[in-house]
Design a protein around this nucleic acid. Sequence first.
DNA 1: CTCGTTGTTCCGTGTCACGGAACAACTTTT
DNA 2: AAAAGTTGTTCCGTGACACGGAACAACGAG
Lengths: 240, 240
Amino acid sequence: MLQKSALILESFLPGGGPFRLSELVERTGLAKPTAHRLTADLVRLGWLERSGPYYRLGAKLFELGSLVPGRRDLRETALPFLQDLFEATHETVHLGVREGLEVVYLERIHGHDSPWLPSRIGGSLPLTCTGVGKALLAFSGAELTEEVLSHPLPSLTPYSITDPEQLRTALEKTQVSGLAYEEREAAEDVSCIAAPVFAGGTAVAALSVAVPRARYRPAQLAPAVRTAALGLSRLLRGGV
Amino acid sequence: MLQKSALILESFLPGGGPFRLSELVERTGLAKPTAHRLTADLVRLGWLERSGPYYRLGAKLFELGSLVPGRRDLRETALPFLQDLFEATHETVHLGVREGLEVVYLERIHGHDSPWLPSRIGGSLPLTCTGVGKALLAFSGAELTEEVLSHPLPSLTPYSITDPEQLRTALEKTQVSGLAYEEREAAEDVSCIAAPVFAGGTAVAALSVAVPRARYRPAQLAPAVRTAALGLSRLLRGGV
DNA sequence: CTCGTTGTTCCGTGTCACGGAACAACTTTT
DNA sequence: AAAAGTTGTTCCGTGACACGGAACAACGAG
């Protein structure tokens, strides 16, 4: 019953978009009367909202989700540094953490003319084809790298790195320079520079700037990204 | 069962802080074995997390909450304007919507030296003693104003307006000027200027700048707030 | 009007949620 | 160190209520 409700709510996860009852039945595998009863209960609790025949995630979830302590606190302390970085570059700025073999974005700030990107707050993407992901992966220990390399590498664009050796050398460069680069691997025509954030010796997060290729000037961006990441690391009582 | 799980999760709502099982039993009124079983289930689903004897809200809720469509879309389109406003003022910027007789904050961005404020993303505060709340209230129809005034007015500080007539005239001024002012009503030593955001003729949100009294220069802030609110309104195909 | 699809209600069956009670693991007190 | 609380966990018999097949109702398209 709880499990089935979770099934319903999590069936919204990739896009969140509105679904009809029959679509929910299809994607959860629940029986029709069961889904009907559960959605009614969830609406009553404010976890789902219903307009006409369509169900969407409810406001109560937004409130609960905003309170999740780890995420909220990290975002809160990182925000001023993300603002600095945005102000220095006026490009899309990300903050993400690792969760398993993926990166979850905690914050993404952008201005009026930002390019399309697959990243969404609360959404996850592969570690291997995002700047934030690479920065995290490079500083999360050799075992994790090996585990990631042991699976076939996912790709978001035709340019995503799929060759394990190529990724391995990229990670080694990142370990030396403290910066991760990503070019057109997450979105066509967007490149990205990322840097890890340390607390207590381990990489707890990473932040990045994503730029349309036409405006991509790594020499200008790299110092800004590094500065923001170091400033945040210092505040988290970390240090490399 | 679902209802009881909701009771547990929502018992985290004001602060989100970690709770032990016995505290959860106390604040939900559930029987001890019931709470024990439900928390175990919720942990299994990723909706709660447990470290030692303490329970916290889980990461899955953050992911679900970030997808809630109304909130996500509005935040996303508003963000560039909030950035503009922040860059123009370098003070704490809010975006909020009305929910019942309270304001819920969708976004709050700030820099390094921001003052303490009671507002939190996903959190709610009274309409009557916040800038965003007043801006929303002033443009949400007379019936709502009457309903708010019919209850005793809550206060967050000794300076919060508690006199109905005083509030009424403040709202009338806001209706004329399109700007809501708040001085030390939400936090001691912080003042705030807010403006409503319109879409399709109704106020769907409001944004504000909150400033420590020492730096409070209304003449500079007001145009910036108005500009951001109007720009956002225009994008939402609204217009006053 | 007819027919496919989708949403809702009914209801008998069987499961599993419920919570009192007893037990176990800690923490504090004397 | 023993005793007396406090908190977390397990057991288990009872009974409520979740379950889903089936039948019905409300659409929407042709």
